[in-house]
């Protein structure tokens, strides 16, 4: 096996493992949230489940961020991306900084600082979404910057998943206050209604991400000539 094959194989494995912990990790979050949102459980149990789903959710959150530099590294290996050498190194550094930010948001104790960091993360997501969408569409139209349309489709799907993540963040805004009121004042029909309504809409976005992930996986495996 040549050095190229060796490293390329390792990167594919990392790529697949990121997919594994993204979609597979989501399973626990998705099912656990049902108990967090159900008034059949007492409030401390719901808080505990909330903490656990929050922790397991760091698997998909982490893998989403890492998927971009790993994907671009694979694309560079296949000569399908102009992001190579130092530029690719820059993407890696930026992605690791983004990952650090994502973890800071998760671990931050002070609500004001958490809000500020999350706001910055949100702007970053919009930026990534726009840049990737434009480069994917440009590839369909002019064959640049990516060397294959199937890769551009994957990039577009990734951007769409980031878009779904943004929608989840917008959707769940009322959730925090409702859950806090649940902890402070106990269960009331209004708080439960808010929690249920928010959960329903965000589940839809989560399922959309799953569907997009499956399509992206299919494009990666089949690499159809389109």
């Amino acid at each position: 096996m040549s050095a190229f094959d060796y490293w390329h194989t390792i990167w594919i494995l990392v790529h697949v493992l990121l997919f594994v912990y993204w979609l597979g990790g989501d399973l626990g979050v998705f099912y656990g949230s049902r108990f967090r949102n159900s008034n059949a459980q007492d409030v401390p149990t719901r808080q505990l489940i909330g903490k656990i789903t929050g922790a397991v959710d760091m698997a998909p959150r982490t893998t989403l961020v890492l998927m971009m530099p790993v994907g671009l590294t694979l694309a560079a290996d296949l000569d399908l991306s102009p992001v190579t050498g130092w530029w690719l190194g820059l993407v890696w550094i930026a992605s690791l900084a983004w990952l650090w930010l994502v973890w800071r948001v998760h671990l931050e104790a002070s609500p004001e600082r958490k809000k500020r960091l999350a706001g910055f993360d949100m702007r970053l997501r919009w930026l990534v979404l726009v840049v990737l969408t434009v480069s994917a569409l440009s590839t369909f139209i002019s064959g640049e910057p990516f060397g294959e349309n199937w890769l551009a489709v994957k990039v577009l799907l990734y951007a769409a998943m980031i878009g779904c993540g943004i929608m989840i963040r917008i959707t769940i805004k009322p959730y925090g206050a409702a859950f806090q009121s649940l902890v402070d004042n106990g269960s009331t029909p209004e708080t439960e209604a808010t929690i249920q309504a928010v959960a329903k809409v965000s589940r839809r976005w989560v399922k959309t991400i799953w569907a997009l992930l499956l399509v992206a996986a299919w494009f990666g495996i089949a690499q159809p000539n389109i």
Binding site: V16, L17, F19, V20, Y21, W22, L23, G24, G25, L27, G28, V29, G32, V56, A59
Partner: peptide, 10 residues
């Protein structure tokens, strides 16, 4: 593999 190894994490 996703629903084996990935689910195992949870």
């Amino acid at each position: 593999l996703v629903y084996w190894l990935g689910a195992d994490l949870g």
